[in-house]
Design a protein around this nucleic acid. Sequence first.
DNA 1: GTATGTTTCAAACACTTGTTTGGAGCGGTA
DNA 2: TACCGCTCCAAACAAGTGTTTGAAACATAC
Lengths: 223, 223
Amino acid sequence: MSQSDTVDRILDAAEQLFAERGFSETSLRQITSKAKVNLAAVNYHFGSKNALIQAVFARFINPFTRILRDRLQGVVAESRKVELEELLQIVTSSVIDIPARNSKSLSIFMRLLGLAYTQSQGHLRKYLEQQYSTEFRLFMRLLKDATPELNAVERFWRIQFMLGATAFTMSSSEALGSILEKELGVKTPVIGIVNQLVPFLAAGINAPSDESRHTSTEAASAG
Amino acid sequence: MSQSDTVDRILDAAEQLFAERGFSETSLRQITSKAKVNLAAVNYHFGSKNALIQAVFARFINPFTRILRDRLQGVVAESRKVELEELLQIVTSSVIDIPARNSKSLSIFMRLLGLAYTQSQGHLRKYLEQQYSTEFRLFMRLLKDATPELNAVERFWRIQFMLGATAFTMSSSEALGSILEKELGVKTPVIGIVNQLVPFLAAGINAPSDESRHTSTEAASAG
DNA sequence: GTATGTTTCAAACACTTGTTTGGAGCGGTA
DNA sequence: TACCGCTCCAAACAAGTGTTTGAAACATAC
């Protein structure tokens, strides 16, 4: 118990500092002093800084992927066509339903996910890919079924655009939120951002491509 | 001339390394050794590493903003309504029309822009904001006119989604492009990515919001 | 009690970081 | 020739990095 106490304190401090400054900008001394543990504790319990980064991710990605996998397999079991918006809703609701450790959990999760993509960090990308390839492939399969009118190249790029909009927004959601609040006096909770994101992404992915606009004019709607 | 030779060599090496690994992950020793100049040259000519980062940006953002400002003011002078897609086309064409120093200029430009947003780097964000606030405001005004059906909050977030999709995709366009080539055997030049991006963004920004879907059913199309 | 395995801790390690220093080399001016 | 401003360069600087060490403290078992 005293071990897991130290371990958890390190993980708590690390995930918070990583979310604030990024990985390479956060030193082990900053982490251990925030966690009020000895410097050597990180290497003792985790082995290395990189392993700590991965452990921080594993702690909240594991619950997420469990939820996501269950729900995706759920709709697969129903063997009916899954619309794009429903698919996106499944992903976002899975994020939202992650058991929260505290009030900031959600935004920290989002921010770290964004950093994972942008700051990468080779070792982390590899770790995430091989760790969660099953869920990723399943999602991709459903996404392909939900967008039959896209050819493979278009779909590839639009997925990247989607990931980009999500990762980027979430990686700076806190900063952006405070800008918005200062500018317009409105506060948007993380869930609110997500709810704005889904229709944007759905419309973008279903957008008519340059060629299809010549052949069809009515397929512009998302529904 | 011998001065600007050293200065340019540093800028060339720096922008390339920054684009490859990011700012804090690139050391001055890596830069100066690639540029084949003395380590102290950076601090002598630029003052500090942060100043070097800003100089790298200034070198290609200045031409870009000149082009963009001219074209935006051009459509303003015509005093007609500017559609969203035209506005996006102006921005992307301005990027493409930046005088290129070499074949990689465009992707390096994109990648650095992406890093500027995601790795930020406070000092750089401040620098860019105060340096190019005029063009940014002008673009925002036109964007507002082009999307009268959006309320301020929606518009704010959709702009972030747009920036995110762009910055993220472009910041890893090279890596993504090689993945696509390996997977599907298709090569997408940077211009091709941009052309895919515009309809995606336009559709996303013009997407029906959650509330408008209750009150209206025909406004779903992007046109 | 002693022995055992685990966890903590201060200190040091080897290394990299951005920046500064003081002298050298250069071209031009008086 | 002497002086000047500019540029270069090897070397050092102070501070920070992740990691390792070896002894201390602790808990648990015998």
